[in-house]
Amino acid sequence: MPTGVAIRDARAQLFQAAERVLLRDGPNALTSRAVTTEAGCAKGVLHRHFADFDAFLAELVREHIAGIDARATALRDAAGTGTVAGNLTGALTGLFGSVAVAIVALITSRDELRTRLRRTTPTGVPMLTEASGALASYLTAERELGRIAADADVDTLAPTLIGATHLLFADRDGTRPDAGAVHKIVTAVIAGVAQEPPR
Rank of each mutant, 00 (worst) to 15 (best):
M1F: 04
M1P: 08
G4P: 00
V5M: 01
V5T: 06
L14T: 02
A17C: 05
A17F: 01
E19K: 07
R20A: 15
L22N: 10
L22G: 12
L22E: 14
R24N: 07
R24D: 13
G26I: 06
P27Q: 09
N28T: 15
N28R: 10
N28Y: 08
A29E: 07
L30C: 04
L30E: 02
V35E: 07
T37V: 07
T37D: 15
E38C: 14
A39K: 00
G44Q: 11
G44F: 01
V45N: 03
L46P: 00
H47E: 10
R48H: 05
F53L: 06
D54W: 00
A55F: 01
F56A: 14
L57K: 08
L57Q: 11
A58S: 12
A58M: 05
A58L: 05
E59F: 08
L60W: 06
L60P: 03
V61I: 14
R62N: 02
E63W: 06
A66G: 14
I68D: 02
R71G: 03
T73G: 14
T73E: 10
A74R: 09
L75E: 01
A78F: 01
A78E: 13
A79L: 04
A79R: 03
G80L: 02
G80A: 11
T81N: 11
T81K: 06
G82S: 14
G82Q: 04
T83N: 01
T83H: 07
L88F: 01
T89N: 13
G90E: 12
L92A: 04
L95A: 05
F96T: 00
V99Q: 04
V101E: 11
V101Q: 06
A102N: 11
I103L: 15
V104M: 07
I107L: 12
T108R: 06
T108C: 14
S109Y: 02
E112C: 09
L113G: 12
L113C: 13
R114P: 08
R114G: 13
T115A: 15
R116Y: 05
L117K: 03
R118K: 07
R119L: 10
R119S: 08
R119D: 15
T120P: 03
T121M: 11
P122R: 04
G124C: 07
V125S: 09
P126V: 09
M127R: 03
L128S: 10
E130N: 13
A131T: 14
S132Y: 06
S132P: 09
G133I: 01
A134M: 11
A134H: 04
L135S: 04
L139R: 00
T140F: 09
R143N: 01
R143S: 07
E144Q: 08
L145F: 08
L145A: 08
G146P: 05
A150P: 00
D151T: 14
D153Q: 13
D153K: 05
L157H: 06
G163E: 04
T165E: 07
L167H: 09
L168V: 06
D178R: 12
D178F: 13
G180M: 12
V182R: 03
K184T: 15
K184S: 15
V186G: 10
T187C: 15
A188L: 11
V189C: 07
I190M: 09
A194G: 05
A194N: 14
P197R: 13
R199V: 15
